[in-house]
């Protein structure tokens, strides 16, 4: 019998709907769909409150992934896509979101989303995406005041981490905890390029280096790469990380240590959201920002509702 193929890069998909909101009582329903290179998120808001979201993997077909993302977010609710007033597409694949009336760059959306999620004290947002990372400075309203991205290569990104997880044979969500199970912090992987880093890892494995040490060395290298971008931008408190890598403590803790700034605690700024146990997910922040923009544009009368039902 064939050996079971394990895919260590596969992170769990999720979806959630808010049991406390009756959407039919709501006036304005907006959605944001963030089609990234690796993951797709859809967020639905009712009158500016989080109603539902999904986080799934992006397939080879962006329009398909966007439609799938939205339908999974709507799962278990009585809402349909036709009930949505305005939808904004964002992310790398934003031009391929069929149900979106408009697109907005993910940089603007992450700043806006982080402002909602972490509160208005956020000044620096680091979005660590699947294939690039973006360093953003914003004001107390979540408006971007400075940004830069590193979109030239995929080292130090989510996809790089997935490739590494597969290579070392450790599920991607175990990378963080295991990177701290070392006797002493090993020197970081020296290659910044994900392809060269991969061959360096293979070399270390052959030398019999303990797995956890290699994991620590890779996390440290990824953290260091992000620090270089952050240093150029200049980090101002409060500092928050968004995107998938924010979930990897192995990278986040090493990053905090290197710049000597703590990231904001991963809890909702809105205490009610915490007491009602709304799931906190750093991956939905871009889509959430898009849904908030949709709300704001409608309220300001800048756009018209496209609601069909």
């Amino acid at each position: 019998m064939a050996e079971e193929v394990r895919e260590f890069w596969r992170w769990p998909e999720s979806h959630w709907a808010n049991p406390d909101i009756d959407w039919k009582q709501g006036k304005i329903i907006t959605s944001g769909v963030d089609v990234g290179s690796v993951s797709t998120q859809a967020v639905i808001m009712v009158d500016g409150e989080l109603y539902a979201f999904s986080s799934t993997r992006t397939g080879s077909d962006s329009p398909d992934s966007a439609l799938k993302g939205l339908s999974i977010a709507l799962e278990g609710t009585s809402m349909t896509a036709d009930n949505i007033d305005y939808c904004i597409g964002t992310g790398y694949g934003r031009v391929n979101v069929p149900m979106a009336q408009q697109t907005i760059t993910e940089i603007a959306c992450h700043a806006r989303g982080a402002n909602f999620v972490y509160g208005s004290a956020v000044r620096t947002v680091m979005d660590m995406g699947g294939q690039d990372c973006k360093a953003i400075r914003c004001d107390e309203r979540g408006k971007v005041i400075k940004f830069m991205m590193n979109d030239k290569c995929a080292a130090g990104t989510g996809r790089g981490m997935e490739v590494f997880a597969d290579l070392i044979g450790v599920p991607v969500w175990e990378i963080g905890p295991r990177s701290f199970q070392v006797e002493k912090e090993p020197p970081m992987i020296s290659s910044t390029c994900v392809v060269f880093a991969k061959s360096e890892v293979v070399g270390l494995l052959e030398e019999g280096e303990p797995e956890n040490d290699i994991i620590a060395a890779y996390c440290a290298a990824m953290a260091h790469r992000i620090v270089e971008l952050l240093n150029r931008l200049g980090v101002e408190k409060e500092f928050a990380i968004t995107g998938g890598i924010a979930k990897n403590e192995g990278v986040v803790k090493r990053l905090e240590k290197e710049i000597d700034v703590k990231t904001m605690e991963k809890v909702w700024h809105n205490p009610e959201y915490n007491s009602r146990n709304y799931p906190f997910d750093t991956q939905i922040i871009g889509a959430l920002g898009a849904a908030l923009f949709a709300m704001a544009l409608l309220e300001r009368g800048r756009v018209k509702s496209a609601r069909k039902a």
Binding site: V144, F147, M148, M149, D151, K152, T192, L229, R232
Partner: peptide, 16 residues
């Protein structure tokens, strides 16, 4: 807003 277009790589900062 300071919009930094470009990239940073091993050889330097390349932004307009």
């Amino acid at each position: 807003m300071l919009a930094n277009y470009g990239f940073k790589d091993g050889s330097g900062d390349w932004f307009l």
